[in-house]
Amino acid sequence: MLTLYGKQLPSHLLLGTAQYPSPAILADAVKASGTAVVTVSLRRETAGGKDGGRFWSLVRSLGVAVLPNTAGCHSAKEAVTTATMAREVFGTNWIKLEVIGNHDTLQPDVFELVEAARTLIRDGFAVFPYTTDDLVVNEKLLEAGCEVLMPWCAPIGSAKGPLNPDALRSMRGYFPDVPLIVDAGLGRPSHAAAVMELGFDAVLLNTAVARAGDPVAMAAAFAKAVEAGRSAYHAGILEPRDMAVPSTPVIGKAVFS
């Protein structure tokens, strides 16, 4: 079980809802992934528009928890206002807090992020911060009251997989009791397995599933990889060795010369 802000969840995979070929494929991918949490967003509605209502009906029919995001915000103030609007619409105090600091890399502006986290937590939000793997920043987020940390492992949508596994390993070692979720940068199931093998508690995926040739099949593949990585971590993984070590016992080996 994964426990996030006191809520027990049966799956260690969180799934985004953007970029699927159709709403039906999104719904099937959610089911195939086994996820219990999907991310959603807010955008400007057009006059007379009904798209938002249709999408919200679909998400509610999936029977999973929603984690609204503040995607596209570039300042603490923008993110805080978006979060309060999301709470009103989606009826949850959970918020995936994104404050973007760079257009090209979509990396978080960690200074605005910490400020926004402080404000939102004072206002009763359960903040899921999209952050970097910087230990000092993550300590500040915990001091602000975050109970979950969500570092990127590579730029959003890049599909590069973990660029700095050592930093992720350090986070696991430094914050042994904090739920850690890799958010952003995963491209294939082996990437998800790799970060789960490091002891991460969950992964948050979107593009890697939604833009796959067959999103539903890829959602199922990621679900297996996440479980495999998690099981391996708990089973105790053999550390690499510098020299060969024979796996077949040498004692009792016949000598012919």
């Binding site: 985004g16 809802t17 953007a18 970029q19 699927y20 999104l26 991310t39 959603v40 967003s41 807010l42 955008r43 400007r44 509605e45 528009g49 798209d51 938002g52 209502g53 999408f55 919200w56 998400v59 609204p68 995001n69 995607a71 609007m85 619409v89 989606f90 959003i156 979107n206 593009t207």
Partner: peptide, 10 residues
């Protein structure tokens, strides 16, 4: 004035 509505997000 901002008028927002649910949409897909990652």
């Amino acid at each position: 004035i901002e008028i927002l509505s649910p949409m897909q997000g990652g």
